[in-house]
């Protein structure tokens, strides 16, 4: 019966990829057609739903403008700095908490519950501490990225196979050798996952901070488009930003070999 079940289940799968692709194309076409229809219908305020042509034109204008790349560079720099600082701090704290049960029992619950709180509420304090320039945006990104990385590393450290550690010790490996040959390779998966999560929330934190108070960066451009009610430009920026964010997330996973680890 089980064999029959698996046969009947696997038979339609062979023909699926084409049907799936067709359905995907159908959904995309339906959404775009619905959008265009809504845009031309006049049911919503004018320009709230701009035509696809206007959005396409705005995307082309955006991608061919030097000013956009300057602001993108500013934001990318802030996010990278935030990820580097938050990543290193998160790694250190995660290793300490993961390697010591007493420290974990004493402090990890603070991280666990502070982690999901809305970080943007700290922004007024960060402005006071780091000023209105890129410093406060980087600090916002650090604060956002730190928690998922620290928690992920701590959990990963505890999940290392004891046998691997015993093998390292039986070979009288030094602390550095233990770290580079045993701990880090064994924790590759949780570290990459933590960095991916950290990148996602760090990006949101930095960009939200830019929308609140800034004179450069992508967040500033988005809020400027809102202020000027330049809707096609705003849609264009959001679309490009979403593509970049999802792409960066996938790239971190790929560079870290996350897909290879999963396949094992």
């Amino acid at each position: 019966m089980a064999a029959t079940g698996s046969l009947t289940a696997s038979a339609p799968v062979r023909g699926r990829p084409n049907r799936v692709t067709l359905l995907r194309i159908g959904i995309i076409v339906a959404v775009l057609a619905g959008w265009e229809l809504l845009s031309r219908s006049g049911w919503l305020y004018r320009d709230v739903v701009p035509s696809l042509f206007a959005i396409g034109k705005a995307i082309v204008a955006l991608l061919s403008s030097g000013e956009y790349y300057f602001h993108l560079g500013v934001t990318a720099g802030e996010i990278l700095a935030a990820l580097a600082i938050g990543g290193v701090l998160g790694l250190i704290v995660g290793l300490l908490l993961g390697g010591n049960r007493f420290l974990a029992a004493a402090f990890e619950s603070y991280l666990y519950y502070l982690g999901p709180t809305p970080k943007i509420i700290f922004f007024p304090i960060l402005i006071m501490w780091f000023g209105v320039g890129p410093g406060s945006k980087i600090a916002m990104g650090v604060l956002s990225a730190f928690f998922p990385i620290a928690l992920s590393v701590a959990a990963g450290m505890r999940e290392i196979d004891r046998v691997l550690i015993r093998v390292g010790k039986s070979f009288r490996a030094t602390t550095w050798q233990m770290a580079t040959k045993i701990y880090v390779p064994a924790m590759r998966h949780p570290i990459i996952n933590g960095v991916r999560l950290g990148l996602g929330v760090g990006l949101i934190g930095t960009l939200l901070a830019e929308t609140k108070l800034s004179n450069k960066g992508i967040g500033y451009l988005i809020i400027q488009a809102y202020t000027l009610f330049d809707m096609p430009r705003m849609y264009a920026m959001l679309i490009v930003l979403f593509v970049l964010a999802i792409g960066a997330n996938a790239l971190v996973g790929r560079l870290g070999g996350l897909s290879n680890i999963k396949r094992r």
């Binding site: 960009l207 929308t211 964010a245």
Partner: peptide, 18 residues
């Protein structure tokens, strides 16, 4: 799954307009 990792909150100016 991709939407789950997208920075949806950044669309708040768009929601403000709508």
């Amino acid at each position: 799954a991709a939407a789950a990792s997208a920075p949806v909150v950044l669309m708040y100016p768009l929601f403000l307009v709508i």
